[in-house]
Computed example of a mutant assay.
Amino acid sequence: MAGVNELYPIGDVARRTGLSVSAIRFYADAGVVTPTEHTDGGFRRYDVHAIARLEVVRTLRELGAGLDDIRDVLSSKKTLAELAAAHLELVEQQLRQFGARRAVLRTIVRQHTTTEQVSLMHKLVSMSDDDRDRLITEFWDFVTEGLDIDPGYVERLRNQRPHLPDEPSTEQLEAWIELADLVRDEDFRTAMRDYYHRAFNNEKGRLMATPEMVARAERQRTLYLEARAAQQAGVPADSPQARDIAERTAAARAEMIAAMTGEHDVEKMRRSMVDYDPSKMVEVRAKMTGLPLSVRYLTLVATINGTPRPDPEKAAAVQKWMAAALRR
């Protein structure tokens, strides 16, 4: 085993550290790691401590550290942890940039993208949080302008907005690109505005937007989530638990209808749920002009936010499960 005080020629140092001879000379001339000894013949020799420092230099350079930072670490002006923290932040920033570029490139590959659209995509993924929030706010300002309903409901609509995480996945970035493109599109903005104005600028719509009806709708949503959880957990449709959920759902829906029409008929609601027909629901949705656009917006927002996305097929499965529970 070599002694601590043994000196090694530059060729041996190069083999031990994985650095080239020219790199070792460069670091010596730059004052980063100087030779332990210069011989009369001009040869440079290094002891084991200098070799260890050169190995640190190589590692830090591979991690992207500059010479000034390396000098600070070797001279104890800056701790290794401080340097690592600074470079970790830089690497994470670069990873976010690469993720954004990947999302743009994947979108270009998937679509027939023009040069102008590529520039727009890059701007979209490079937006700050404030810029993204401002874009969505402007969209909802346009959509809800002149909507004559309870202000609280308008605020609920406006709160349906994306929140891109600090480290978004490629899927989230792609969803943001599509959403940002949509809310800037004049046809989409106008169609969404027309949809909400048709749905709410009438007596029935204004009633549905009142705090009382919103509370009833929230009650139904809670029951649906309970039913979905039970159905996905494999609770049999002919079990008492399934029957209880379905009965409470029928009662809540009947109360909603009664608040709208004055007619309270739980048995009629039960029959309606038992006779559930997915194909009829597709027809109903098709007649609701603008609904697919709203669903697309909410689906993209859910993808960006990492929350469950609207899924008509899963919703239909839950309705069938409750229909079966009420038949037993």
Rank of each mutant, 00 (worst) to 15 (best):
S76C: 07
M281I: 08
Y153N: 01
T34N: 03
N5I: 11
T144W: 02
S119M: 12
E186K: 14
A30K: 15
D12W: 02
A227Q: 07
L67C: 04
A286M: 08
S76A: 15
L124Y: 09
D181R: 13
T249V: 05
M322A: 00
T36R: 10
V282I: 10
R328G: 15
E212M: 12
A199D: 15
A84V: 15
L293K: 09
Y195F: 15
N305V: 05
V4E: 09
D72T: 06
T59M: 11
A233H: 07
G290K: 01
L157D: 04
N202A: 04
H49R: 15
V274D: 03
A191E: 15
M213L: 15
V266R: 14
F139Q: 07
A28V: 10
R45E: 07
D130V: 13
D148Y: 02
L225C: 03
V118T: 12
L60D: 08
R309N: 01
T137R: 15
A217M: 15
V125R: 03
D277P: 06
A2Q: 13
M121I: 01
N5G: 13
V104S: 00
E155F: 04
M288V: 05
S239Y: 05
R309F: 00
T36D: 04
G11K: 13
Y8S: 05
R106N: 13
L164I: 11
V48S: 10
A259H: 10
L19S: 05
V301A: 03
L207C: 02
S75G: 11
L80P: 02
N202T: 02
F43V: 03
D141A: 13
I304M: 06
R219G: 01
S239K: 12
R45L: 14
E6A: 14
A209K: 09
T303L: 08
K280I: 11
R219A: 11
D68I: 08
T144V: 15
A199H: 07
V33F: 10
T210G: 06
Q220A: 14
K204Q: 11
A100N: 03
R296I: 04
T34W: 05
V21N: 09
Y297K: 04
K204W: 12
G3W: 14
Q220I: 15
I51M: 07
R158G: 03
Y153S: 05
A86C: 01
V73G: 02
P168R: 10
F142C: 08
D68S: 13
L63P: 00
G99K: 04
R106L: 14
G306Y: 06
L120S: 14
E313P: 00
K320Y: 02
D185A: 03
V274W: 05
N202G: 07
V13A: 08
A227W: 03
G42I: 12
Y153I: 02
N305C: 08
R16E: 11
A2G: 10
R271K: 15
I10C: 05
L90N: 08
T34Q: 13
R156N: 11
Q97S: 08
L88I: 08
G42K: 13
G66M: 12
M288P: 00
G290W: 02
L74R: 06
L80A: 14
G41L: 03
E167S: 05
F142A: 14
K314M: 12
